[in-house]
Amino acid sequence: MKYSRLIFALGALLGFTLLVPNILPQYLVRVLIVMGINIILVASLGLSNGFTGVFSLGHVGFMALGAYSSGILTLSVSKKLAYLPDLPGFLAGYNLPFLPATILAGLLCAAVAFLIGIPLMRLSGNYVSVATLGFLVIVNNVLINAETLTRGARTFTGIPDFTTLPWVVAWMVVTLVVLSRIAYSPFGRAMRATREDGIAAQGIGIQVLPTRLIAFTIGAFFAGIGGALYAHYLVSFSPATFYIAMMVTQLTMLVLGGQASLTGATLGVVIVTVLSELLRNLERGFDLGFVKLPAVFGASQIALGLIFILVMVFRPQGLFGDREIKFVESKVERNERPVPDHL
């Protein structure tokens, strides 16, 4: 049956999600939550950076917008009075439940991406990277200064802790299914064509600008979703949370797994998460009985950075390149890239 693998995988994931919080220690559940959120973020980053070749450094900027907007929308009226007394009336008076707030956050990011994408998607190569980095800096600067909305550089706190593992897994499934539907549709082929050769793509009737813009906008939508989930997981954060360090971590995950592969993005996240958890524990220093290793803070990041460089030098296409693990058996003719739905 065409969907048997997909159904099996979804079933297994459902069982896992329901079971895990009851058997695993709280610490590991939290690691899994962050990992799921990162899969949403990195897979959506791959849509513009890997599939379309618009190498954006501004993804974390959208994530920040998502986190703050969902935070503001869900904050209870009493907390708004305490933390954000100067909030405009239409925001101060009420608060939204989790799901609509998350979706609104995603839509807001998509709208912003669409607007800034109209000019930015005309740029190519290094320039689009520098310009999107500029976007990240602008977002950071605005968040710090828009005190009535964000408490400025101070910690934004009091956000309800809605994010649970089932929520994250559900959004992760939605993200991956939607992204794989897009990436391996005719539109996805157009995206890849603009990456390979913009001029040639134009020659065969693909409109480069709209193609890039749509990919960028969809990527930003899921960045907003991921940001919202992260906000309700952290509960309190500041503009500094969503800045360069986070950008580098997400890039490492994407680049390690393979920029033009959703499977690669997913596995990149898993590998980097596992590695950094391991390294983080090592970094605290440990006692081998006969020898005591001291704590070396920063060592795990250095190791990640080195892995990043090794990938760039020896396998710039990432571990997976553009290959995928398929979850839907497709009847596409040979020579054509199959349409994988995968998790």
Binding site: F55, V248, V296, G298, Q301, I302, F308, V313, P316
Partner: peptide
Amino acid sequence: AYRPVRGAPDVTMLLTSVALTYILENLGIL
């Protein structure tokens, strides 16, 4: 770091330098 990726696509070189920043700053912290 840079000589091995010389001539690679712009993005590969850019990412290598991003990784280097990350290493150098964390080395500073360490």
